[in-house]
């Protein structure tokens, strides 16, 4: 498939007490259109930094990020670890937020309705963020990213703050949602099982470098997935 995003020799340095600290070191990565890529790594390995640079929230020290010409991506959507909903807007208004004033009101409210249904949020449409659970808030944050017209969605441990049940449920729903549409996803997690469950490709990041890439076989048996998991964990701990 056509790559939608090409990252070459991406390095990010932070100045800490006068010395340069490399949070990302010469990252090379190609993301095919419509793919679901997961990035795993220990905390502090540079996962968030990588996503933030791709999103344009931070500048790279050196290196390049190229969106392929012809791809409709102008800006990727971003789902943060915390839902970051605007507390003065209802769930419905939060989901509409990226397109508010950029789309005809009738069209917009139809699209919002569709997202609410897709994510099981219809009955919470009029609730404020402080009135809903963390799982529901993260669903709303997801709806906000899905409604934004972009082909590339970046997610930074979006399920990290959820309990095991909610987490499992949303993992399955994410899989269904993204199987059904054409979006390209880069999904960061520190949970290896989650990375395998969701990803077509798993990238292992450690100390700012890509250690290994694993393809997840589509029709894999449990034993195969177990071996894959062992391999990834070995690679992280090496």
């Amino acid at each position: 498939m056509q790559p939608v995003l090409k990252i070459s020799n991406l390095t990010k340095e932070y100045q800490l007490d006068g010395t340069a600290f490399r949070a990302l070191n010469e990252i090379k990565l190609t993301i095919p259109a419509g793919s679901f890529t997961t990035v795993v790594g220990k905390s502090g390995s540079g996962k968030t930094t990588l996503l933030r640079i791709i999103a344009g929230l931070e500048k790279a020290t050196t290196g390049e990020i190229n969106y392929l010409s012809g791809s409709s991506v102008q800006r990727p959507a971003f789902v943060f670890q915390e839902a970051r909903l605007l507390p003065w807007l209802t769930v419905e208004q939060n989901i509409a937020f990226p397109l508010q004033g950029k789309l005809e009101q009738v069209e917009l409210s139809q699209r919002v309705k569709r997202q609410l249904q897709l994510l099981g949020l219809t009955e919470f449409a009029a609730a404020y963020p402080a009135q809903i659970s963390g799982g529901m808030a993260q669903r709303a944050a997801l709806g906000r990213a899905l409604i934004y017209e972009t082909d590339l969605i970046l997610m930074d441990e979006p399920l990290g703050a959820l309990d095991a049940f909610n987490r499992r449920k949303l993992q399955e729903e994410l899989q269904t949602i993204f199987a059904a549409n054409q979006k390209t996803v880069i999904f960061v997690t520190h949970d290896v099982e989650e990375a395998i469950f969701l990803g077509e490709k798993v990238i292992v990041l450690d100390e700012g470098q890509i250690l290994a890439e694993f393809k997840v076989p589509i029709t894999a048996e449990n034993s195969q997935l177990f071996t894959l998991k062992e391999n990834i964990i070995t690679s992280i701990n090496s």
């Binding site: 929230l57 970051r84 605007l86 003065w88």
Partner: peptide
């Protein structure tokens, strides 16, 4: 962190002020 939400969805400086900063300061 909420202002960053505006950045992520491509809001202009002006839009970020009126849609995020001002309502929060209200």
């Amino acid at each position: 962190k909420l202002v960053e939400v505006g950045h992520v969805f491509g809001l202009s400086r002006r839009e970020r002020f009126f849609k995020i900063v001002l309502p929060q300061a209200l």
